[in-house]
Design a protein around this nucleic acid. Structure first.
Lengths: 215, 215
DNA sequence: ATCCCAACTGAACGTCCGGTCGGTTATTTG
DNA sequence: CAAATAACCGACCGGACGTTCAGTTGGGAT
């Protein structure tokens, strides 16, 4: 019997369950790298013996699989949600960027791990394949928005999409949730920079040129 | 005696020297990850025995050190060059972006490896420290440009600089030099997207609105 | 022809790796 | 109190890891 709520009552000896163990494991994987983390090091960080880990998961592989799937499931849910937006493709694209930033913030450690996968094992190669599928959807969306005339025509849409999500994905390198900056707030910032650039935009109407010349 | 030119004549048994070995090693490190690459695997890719590698370098560490230093030296040279540009800070910034893209293209495998360093060893930690120093210079430059009013004031300059170079650095994920796209051409594209955004800019003068409606 | 020298080999080494196994401890349920 | 349940331990295994070492190979220079 699993209690549907906060599961404060759990049978057996208390300690880690699969979920809490995964949280710590992914954290360590991100600090030292997946290949750079030994099961022994991981067990020390968990405060339990190495063999205890195998009570929860079948091996190191499964920890990675659980992590990257959680990231990918989030990203595909974001894509599905964005595709449902009616109207212009560029609006779907902006929605996708916002939703992706949301997933990135909510599941930061998992997405971080996903973005560093190299393809050494079957688990990694499958993750990379799913990720490429996501990237293809983004590229298609950008191409569609370009065809509708809402994306700058002087850059190849394939490159635009890569630079756009290159910027989005780079969040994992520095964003830390401790700050009071919410996900939506961050998504706003990313959209501003990504869609209209880092340069100060020129005043839209040349009539109201009452801007002072500085200090 | 080292011949100053193409060094087509070299003493001793022919084979790898430190440089040609480094090229292959960095390539393999980028494919499988540094920690994920064993000296045995590396020796197979080189076509020589494992122990032969130690004739050229002191160990796996040195290969990594040589690689990341080559990337960092390039980036700092780019920074120095950019700082020498007179005029507005935003011009120095654009120069720095272009020069950084240039380094990224010229030394792609080395920069790729640098950007994936996690800090497990002393070599890695020192590389990360130097990289943070570079990032600090970028952040200062963006802050200066913002103070001069050339960067959009509605986003924290610290975040702007991170997103900007997040986009630049994401090039290592997909750019491959085989295409005929030159570094300068790519730098132009990156500057366009980064400084003025992915969205189609509104026509600057509303008089010439003779744009056709499509196909 | 011979010397030099850089490149290379093969067999080890101690250590760490991911994973296994049989048994133990702590908590909830009835 | 048992019974059921879930988490955990310590010793161990075979193999892969980075590295070492005493020698060997092969081409350029003289």
């Amino acid at each position: 019997m699993t209690t549907a709520d906060g599961r404060q009552t759990r049978r057996g000896r208390p300690g880690y369950d699969k979920e809490s163990l995964l949280q710590v494991a992914v954290k360590v994987f991100n600090e030292r790298g997946y290949d750079g983390t030994s099961m022994d090091e991981l067990s020390k960080r968990l405060g339990i013996s190495k063999s205890a880990i195998y009570h929860h998961v079948s091996g190191k592989d499964e920890l990675l699989r659980l992590a990257v799937d959680r990231a990918l499931d989030g990203l595909f849910a974001a894509a599905e949600q964005a595709m449902a937006v009616e109207g212009r493709a560029v609006d779907r694209l902006e929605h996708l960027v916002r939703a992706s930033v949301g997933v990135l913030v909510d599941r930061l450690p998992f997405v971080t791990l996903l973005l560093r996968v190299r393809g050494n094992t079957t688990v990694e190669r499958r993750a990379m394949a799913r990720r490429r599928e996501f990237d293809r959807m983004v590229a298609d969306l950008v191409a569609q928005a370009a065809a509708e005339g809402d994306i700058r025509p002087d850059v190849d849409p394939a490159i635009t999409s890569r630079l756009l999500f290159g910027m989005v994905n780079s969040l994992v390198e520095w964003y830390r949730p401790q700050g009071r900056r919410s996900g939506a707030e961050l998504a706003d910032t990313v959209c501003k920079i990504a869609f209209t650039g880092v340069r100060r935009p020129r005043p839209p109407d040349p009539q109201s040129s009452a801007v002072s010349g500085g200090s």
